[in-house]
Amino acid sequence: MVNQEDPRVLRTRRLIRDAFREMLQHKGFDAMTIKDIAEKATINRATFYTHYEDKYALLEEIIEQAFHRMIPEQVENAGEFTDEICTELILMTHRYIVDFYQKCRMDSKSIATLVDEKIKRMLQEIIEVILVKADHSRTADLNQVKILAAMTGSAIYSAAYQWLWAKEKERTELLVDMVRPYVMKGLGLSQER
């Protein structure tokens, strides 16, 4: 087993991730091989396989790390699902999608599907944690919370993804104004204005 705290391991993993990101931009996911990644990272293939099962496992780790770095502290510490938290989740998801789709060559349906599903799952987990925290009386059925979190995460993700291709994609306040009331009403948290 590899010691994940060893500086050499950390350095090697960083080299692999950096090589992967560069290859993803220039060569694309489907055309990229483990040999390509290893050569670019100046390691051998056996070393790659010591750290990652395959390029899909590496992709998942990169998606997860990038997404978690983008989570605002306000969202991480949220004790309830408010308009502000909803806004932050919408904007964060939009930023992530824009960053990923514009910086990477998305010439592969398989990678797009994998990225989409991973982001939706992580968004759902964030929302689920917030909803559980907000239920101070602990009366919520966990299955209902999971379903609400899944629907909410899917709505936010789908809207943010569609906005990537919208005419006014730079005007994220329009995205928020459209999505937030829908999400808040769906959760039964809308405030009459």
Rank of each mutant, 00 (worst) to 15 (best):
R105T: 10
D99Y: 11
P72R: 13
Q102G: 03
T93C: 09
K118A: 13
I97K: 05
M92N: 01
Q124M: 10
I71T: 13
F67C: 03
C104E: 09
Y96T: 06
F67L: 08
V115D: 02
I97E: 11
K118F: 01
E88W: 03
I85K: 02
Q102V: 07
Q65T: 12
I62D: 06
E88T: 01
I63F: 10
I90S: 08
M106F: 08
F81L: 06
M122A: 09
A78D: 03
E125N: 09
R105V: 07
T82D: 03
I90G: 08
D83G: 07
I111T: 09
E88D: 14
T93F: 00
E61I: 01
M106C: 11
F67V: 07
V75F: 07
F81Q: 05
E73Y: 08
I97V: 14
F100W: 11
V115H: 07
R95D: 14
L91C: 13
A57T: 09
E125Q: 12
E64F: 03
M122F: 10
C104P: 00
E64D: 08
K55R: 15
Y96I: 01
Q102L: 11
E76N: 13
I71M: 11
M106I: 12
G79V: 08
V115F: 10
D107Q: 11
E117D: 15
R121N: 04
V98R: 12
E80W: 02
F81R: 05
M70W: 00
V75Y: 05
H94Y: 15
H94V: 00
I62H: 01
M70P: 01
D107F: 07
G79E: 14
R95L: 06
R121M: 07
D99N: 14
E76S: 13
M122Q: 15
E76P: 00
R95I: 01
D99H: 11
I111D: 06
T82W: 05
K120F: 00
L123K: 05
N77C: 07
N77S: 13
K109L: 12
C86W: 02
K120G: 00
I85M: 02
Q74S: 15
L59S: 10
K118T: 15
Q102M: 09
E60P: 00
A112Y: 10
L59I: 01
Y101C: 10
D83Q: 08
K120I: 09
M92Q: 09
H94T: 08
V115N: 08
N77E: 14
D99Q: 13
I97T: 11
R69H: 14
Q65F: 00
T87S: 12
E76I: 04
I63L: 14
A66K: 13
I71L: 13
E88A: 12
Y96K: 05
M106V: 09
R105H: 08
Q102W: 02
G79M: 10
V115C: 02
I71G: 07
Q74Y: 12
T82G: 04
H68N: 15
E80C: 06
E60R: 11
I62A: 00
E84R: 14
E64K: 07
I97W: 02
E73V: 14
V98D: 09
